[in-house]
């Protein structure tokens, strides 16, 4: 695998560029089709309210997929991800309007794990509407 980010150039605390990801109802319909997850809480407002949600919510796996883009774009090779995990703490609520919702993701190098394997742990923070939507979000990546 060929990351372009060099292990020698990063330190614990190195911050990755902050990114924002817009999510509209159209985004969710498209993700439902591509992923095969057709749970109606992600596209049917009536159903979402019936099961106690405030509105339609984004797929947790969409949020997880968006957050790791901060890491893969920084590393240069999506194949350099060795490990990636999250906890789904709060739903991303997506209203039926043109703006929809926004997921904001920041990340920093938490630790350099292995000088020989050139692996680092990146700690991620993802919020939407001021709420933390992912917990314990961490990726381990192999750098150049």
């Amino acid at each position: 695998m060929a990351a372009t980010r060099r292990y020698a150039d990063v330190e614990p605390g190195t911050e990755l560029p902050v990114r924002t990801f817009p999510v509209t109802r159209e985004t969710l319909v498209r993700y439902a089709g591509a992923s095969g997850d057709f749970n109606p809480i992600h596209w049917n407002e009536r159903f979402a309210r019936e099961v106690g949600l405030p509105d339609v919510i984004a797929h947790g796996m969409f949020t997880m997929a968006s957050a790791v883009r901060v890491v893969t774009d920084w590393v240069g090779d999506p194949g350099a991800v060795v490990e990636y995990g999250v906890r789904f703490t709060k739903p991303v609520v997506v209203p039926d309007d043109v703006e929809g919702a926004v997921i904001e993701v920041s990340a920093k190098v938490g630790a350099k794990l292995d000088d020989e394997a050139r692996t680092v742990r990146v700690d991620l923070t993802a919020t939407s509407a001021g709420q933390k939507v992912l917990g314990m979000a961490r990726a381990v990546v192999r750098l150049a």
Partner: peptide, 13 residues
């Protein structure tokens, strides 16, 4: 059922 946590450990992509 709701999704609580998700983690992947990759040998290769």
């Amino acid at each position: 059922v709701v999704h609580g946590d998700q983690r992947f450990a990759y040998v290769r992509p």
